[in-house]
Nucleic acid binder design. Structure first.
Lengths: 227, 227
DNA sequence: CGAGTTTTTGAAGGACATCAACGTCTGTGG
DNA sequence: CCACAGACGTTGATGTCCTTCAAAAACTCG
């Protein structure tokens, strides 16, 4: 049976992808067409409603993708880490906003090249599809979290997921602030803070340095909450 | 600029897709490879953990796709209506369950043909990608609903969405029961019921026939809640 | 009609939000 | 190096929206 694994796409090192002849149309490795861009903390990479001319892959740093309601309520659907692809959409305009959390480097790919890429390079097609399916899978998991989990369970799921993606050890340096975590988990900053305190008291985690670094002291305990 | 529009895929009429030579490998229209299947109310089309040998397109009826937590809590990520594609995944196993709500007909496509299809037919590739992107877009919208909307807003969004997808008029015949709506909107059946009653009292909707048919009496009022 | 299922309604409770104040960190300039 | 201002994070008191528990009403279908 055929497997679709996003790691194919993610494994392409940015440096290699950029090393090729960037402006040679029709070149075999289509990833060479991307261009590197840098952003500072808080910079907008694109906004809801912008025409989507590019899609992106994170090289370094963290990008938050979010939707806003008219009255300012915000839902961060994901934090995009190095290797993640974001900004691919079905319509003419971006349906969400992407902003840099701290210093960020991304590779921007022209969306107008898309049809050509898909036609010329089925392997590229597959990598992109795998990437979309991974995003979809994460989205489904997050819907369970938002629709059916308690604050404690949401936080446990979040910490375990961040640790898995960002760190090889049991320690995570969270790049985002409490407000971002709250808007990702469908909570308020106060509840995020209280839940973390509660976890510390329960011996599940330890906090250091302004609460930005989290040590997962009791992974098993956290996994029970992750369900 | 190139547009990715899921309507290409959805527009292919099931009958036409099935009319072709179903077992001829390499045939131009790869949609001909699907096989029609029927299900009754409550039947499981596939379960979480099943190897994913097929993906599906709804021909008639409604399919709910859901995730379950260990203790029975459920999150229905979407109701799949005629034309919708579901069951495409990145891994070897289905990560969610698909069940028939009432009588359902679907076309099942072999996932193992996938790589071949993508290689042989870039147009098919594009239709599938458009479909994934549409699903992803819906998922993002639903995350905002689950993370940041009130019960009243959730119900308004749900009713308007169902009306848009199922009906040309201002009247919707909901195929699912309250428990399904609750598990889709991240609420309880009691809150669903109370919210509908509240909408009736506010003149936003009218209910008939065991509350299965909803008349959107004040679409403008509902849209305000949809934000 | 009648048993079982689904929906509605009511009363009480709880988890998270809101409002408010205080504590802590960061970075800049004296 | 320390002081200070502003941003960020924590903690407390109170409120509220939704859930939970309970029961009645309405519907379905043999």
């Amino acid at each position: 049976m055929q497997t679709f694994n996003a790691s194919h796409l993610n494994r392409v090192p940015a440096a290699v992808a950029l090393r090729g002849p960037a402006n040679m149309p029709g070149h075999r490795d289509e990833m060479t067409r991307g261009q590197l861009r840098s952003f500072e903390r808080g910079d907008e990479i694109f906004a809801e409603g912008d025409p989507c001319q590019f899609f992106y892959k994170v090289v370094s740093g963290t990008v938050r993708t979010a939707k806003l309601l008219a009255d300012g309520r915000r839902q961060i659907d994901d934090f995009n880490l190095p290797g993640d692809v974001f900004g691919l959409e079905s319509g003419e305009c971006h349906r969400f906003t992407a902003e840099a959390i701290g210093k960020v480097e991304v590779i921007a790919y022209r969306r107008s090249d898309f049809r050509g890429l898909v036609h010329d390079d089925p392997a590229f097609s597959q990598r992109l599809m795998a990437c979309m399916l991974t995003n979809l899978d994460r989205a489904h998991g997050h819907m369970v979290l938002l629709g059916r989990k308690t604050a404690l369970e949401r936080m446990a799921s979040f910490l375990l997921d961040m640790a898995r993606r960002m760190s090889s050890s049991d320690q995570v340096e969270l790049p985002m602030q409490r407000a971002d975590i709250a808007d990702h988990l469908g909570l308020t900053i106060e509840t995020v803070s209280r839940t973390l305190t509660q976890m510390v008291r329960a011996g599940l985690i330890r906090l250091t340095e302004a609460g930005r670094t989290v040590v997962l002291a009791d992974k098993a305990g956290l996994r029970v909450l992750n369900t």
